[in-house]
C-alpha cells in the first residue's frame, strides 16, 4: 500500500516538476510547482513526518508560491515576451543543479546515522518537542545564524523598496 502511494506521489512530483520547467505560461508553471510542493509534502507524510509536511505546506505552498504567483500576475508576463535563453545559461543552470544535488546527497549521508540513533533510542524523533530540543540544544548557533540571515534579507528588501523615496527627499532638501 505504502509503495503504491509512493510511486504515485513520485510520478506526480517528477511530472509536475518537468511541467513547471516546460510550460510556456509562467502562471501555469507556478501552479505546477505548487502541485509539486504538495506531492513533496505527501512524501514527508509517508515518512511519518507530520510536522515537516505541514510546515512545508505553510512555507512553500502557503507563503512563497502565493507571493510568486502574486508577482507573476502583477507583472503580467506572457509567453511571447520571454527572452531567448543562450546555451551557456542552460549549461550553467544544469551544472549548478548537479552541484546542489551533490551537496544535498552528502548532507543526507551525514544525517542518516543521527536519525538512527534517535530511532534506536526509542524517542519519537518526529514530534515537535524533540525537534525543538535538538534545534535549541545541539544546533542553536546555526539556527540563530539562519534567523540573522533572514533578518538581513528582510532589511535588504525594505531598503531596495525605499530607495526611490530616499533619493527624492534628498533632492527636495537640496
Amino acid at each position: 500500500m505504502g509503495e503504491i502511494i509512493f510511486y504515485f506521489l513520485a510520478a506526480i512530483t517528477l511530472g509536475t516538476a518537468f511541467l513547471t520547467v516546460l510550460s510556456r505560461n509562467p502562471i501555469h508553471s507556478a501552479i505546477y510547482l505548487v502541485i509539486c510542493f504538495f506531492s513533496i509534502a505527501g512524501h514527508y507524510l509517508l515518512l511519518n513526518a507530520q510536522f515537516l509536511a505541514i510546515v512545508h505546506i505553510i512555507v512553500y505552498s502557503g507563503a512563497i508560491m502565493i507571493l510568486m504567483l502574486f508577482t507573476i500576475m502583477l507583472m503580467n508576463l506572457h509567453a511571447n515576451l520571454e527572452k531567448y535563453k543562450p546555451t551557456m545559461i542552460n549549461l550553467g543552470a544544469t551544472v549548478g543543479f548537479c552541484l546542489l544535488g551533490l551537496i544535498l546527497i552528502s548532507g543526507l549521508m551525514h544525517t542518516k546515522p543521527v536519525v538512527e540513533s534517535y530511532y534506536y533510542g526509542g524517542e519519537d524523533f518526529q514530534s515537535i518537542n524533540v525537534l525543538g530540543q535538538v534545534l535549541m540544544n545541539d544546533y542553536v548557533v546555526p539556527f540563530e545564524f539562519v534567523s540573522v540571515l533572514l533578518l538581513v534579507a528582510m532589511i535588504g528588501a525594505v531598503l531596495i523598496s525605499k530607495k526611490d523615496t530616499v533619493k527624492k527627499d534628498t533632492i527636495k532638501k537640496a
Binding site: Q50, F51, I54, I57, I58, G62, A63, I66, S127, I128
Partner: peptide, 25 residues
C-alpha cells in the same frame, strides 16, 4: 488528532487563498 493540529489549520488557511487567486486570474 494529529500532533500539529494548529499548524494544520494554518496550512489549510494559507492554501485557501489559491481558490480566490486562481479563479480571479
Amino acid at each position: 488528532d494529529i500532533n500539529a493540529a494548529l499548524l494544520y489549520v494554518f496550512a489549510v488557511l494559507s492554501v485557501g487563498v489559491y481558490g480566490i487567486m486562481i479563479g480571479g486570474w
